[in-house]
Computed example of a mutant assay.
Amino acid sequence: MPSTRSNRIKQWDKIEASSLVQLVYVSTLTIASRLNTSIFEDVEVHARDYNEQHGITGTLCYGNGQFLQCIEGEKRHVFALQKRIFADNRHKNVEVLLLQEIDHRSFTDWRMRLLFLERWLWSPATKEQAAQLSPFLPFAPHGWSPDRTGQFLQIIKNFDTPPHIKAAGITYNALGNMFRHIAAPHQAFLIIQGFLSVLLVVALVLLYL
């Protein structure tokens, strides 16, 4: 069940400011943002300094036009970051999937690991390594239960190992290309799809003339 604003506030109120917490939210990238090839690099650069200064770690996943981000750190810092993120107009349909106190972090990299969850951009080696993700693809995390969210995080946190990085044969943390290298192909894919749609319309028009 999607978290309502009042439920999220109640959850936050029950947690001490110094407690270690894990927040997982999902959102949809706006159409304008999908056509902006620099958005992923911007997110990475801005997050890097802030996260290092405030002890924030986690992972950011993107696929099928949707974000899923896991943020870990002290409640006061995670809460402040959540307000900043949720106010960002580059995405919409923000939904909290999971908010809980934790004893230890699942992700330890303050650079906020970026994972691109679209099979058509994966190398054969990456597809083999990521076979466990099949139940979660195509990527549509809105409405996931806490259990399903936890299962997904458990799988992807294990990708942060040398075999997955080396076997993939392409450079991005544990799963694929760095976002700045795949944003352009993503845009190109949209352009090609649009061109093919135009050709289909023209063919149908000619067929019925």
Rank of each mutant, 00 (worst) to 15 (best):
H46W: 11
N173G: 09
V201F: 02
H91D: 07
F116I: 09
A130R: 03
R148H: 00
S3N: 01
L175H: 10
Q151L: 11
A32W: 08
F159D: 04
L99D: 15
Q82L: 04
L81Q: 08
H54Y: 14
D13F: 04
R180S: 07
V96Y: 14
G169I: 14
V94T: 13
K14W: 02
Q66A: 04
C61V: 03
F40L: 12
C70N: 01
L206W: 04
A32T: 06
K14Y: 08
T108N: 11
L81M: 13
V96C: 09
I156F: 12
A183S: 07
L190I: 01
F152Y: 11
P163L: 15
S19F: 10
Q132F: 02
Q100S: 02
A188Q: 12
A174S: 02
E118P: 08
S18R: 02
N93E: 15
I102P: 06
I170Q: 11
H186G: 11
A17R: 09
R90L: 03
T28F: 10
E74Y: 13
S106D: 10
P141E: 01
L209F: 12
R111W: 05
I9T: 07
V78L: 14
K92V: 03
P2Y: 00
Q66C: 11
Y25D: 05
A167I: 00
D88A: 10
M178E: 06
L137V: 13
D88K: 09
Q193H: 06
A131Q: 03
R8W: 01
I165F: 13
S123Q: 07
D147V: 15
N158R: 10
P141H: 06
R84N: 14
W12K: 13
Q22G: 00
R5C: 03
R5S: 01
A140L: 10
T30H: 00
C70F: 06
P135K: 06
L196R: 01
R148T: 10
L97F: 10
G169D: 11
G150T: 12
D13N: 02
K14R: 12
V21E: 08
R111I: 09
H164R: 05
R8C: 00
A125G: 00
Q132A: 09
G65V: 03
A183M: 04
L206Q: 08
E101C: 12
E44M: 10
K92W: 13
S197A: 13
I71G: 07
D49H: 15
T30Q: 00
E16Y: 12
L29G: 05
L60K: 11
I165L: 13
V45L: 03
T57H: 06
A130E: 05
Y62S: 01
P141M: 07
Q66P: 08
L98R: 03
L133Y: 09
N7T: 12
N173F: 14
R8H: 00
I85K: 01
R34N: 03
Q187H: 14
